[in-house]
Design a protein around this nucleic acid. Structure first.
Lengths: 130, 130
DNA sequence: AAATTTAATGATAATGATTGTCATGTGCAA
DNA sequence: TTGCACATGACAATCATTATCATTAAATTT
């Protein structure tokens, strides 16, 4: 019954690249980076692998306003992000009382099964200096 | 120089529908609703009008995880939303100290030109009862 | 080690939301 | 009323993502 995840060259290549990448990257960027380092993986497989890793909570997946989905290897504890709009460099941040606040507000209005999105976007120091 | 916004039947129809709609709706849904009430507007024009209204901060525009852009007439003061994943019904909420918190965190990491997204998603009472 | 089973791969096509094009329509200022 | 510039909308184009499916190759069994 349990879905067996096979250990393939492609899955390892994607996982390894994510380990070495600190910025949020799109599927296309990850595809390009893999080609550059000589460990090409088909674009379809890149999408599938990222989706699989995201479902397993091994990578974070987000979509900035007006942009495509971005992926990044993160710690497993719940956190939020401060992301550079220009280069994708990322700082993991821990929201203060967002969790409990969200639950309380939702309950007050009769909403259940609550989730939330909280992301900060800005321009990092490097990109500010052009 | 200033862009003049003309008062057309189509723009009025979209604005009027938004005034009477309390839920976040997609462009396609708005297009359909306009047809139903006999004030049809071309889909391209619906998109253009919504974008124009969003840029003027007269409607809020958001994109739930895995979904398309949604639009809703809101108050002009800055606020966040609690949105039903199932029917789109929305409660406007005011975040606590999110603003200042975001600015402080960003400054600590050398980021400038900060913006943030904070949205809550859940299932409203009506949809919980099927 | 070979055979077998079944998930994974990837080239390609399909999808679908959003945007671009451009001929025509129309608000509005003169 | 006229003229100009923006607005409209049918249609085509774009493009990220997903579906298809024949082929490859893990992992398991013989």
């Amino acid at each position: 019954m349990a879905t067996v995840v096979r250990n393939t060259r492609q899955r390892s290549a994607v996982a390894q690249l994510l380990l070495e990448t600190d910025e949020f990257r799109s599927a296309q960027e990850i595809y390009d980076l893999l080609r550059q380092r000589g460990t090409s993986v088909g674009l379809t497989t890149v999408y599938r692998t990222l989706q699989s890793l995201a479902e397993a909570d091994e990578v974070d997946m987000m979509r900035p306003p007006g942009g495509d989905y971005l992926y990044r290897q993160c710690t497993t504890e719940h956190h939020h992000h401060l992301v550079c709009r220009s280069c994708g460099s990322t700082v993991e941040i821990t929201g203060p009382a967002v969790e409990s606040w969200a639950q309380r507000i939702a309950a007050e209005h009769g909403f259940s099964d609550i989730s939330h999105t909280l992301e900060l976007f800005g321009t990092c120091r490097t990109c500010s200096a052009q």
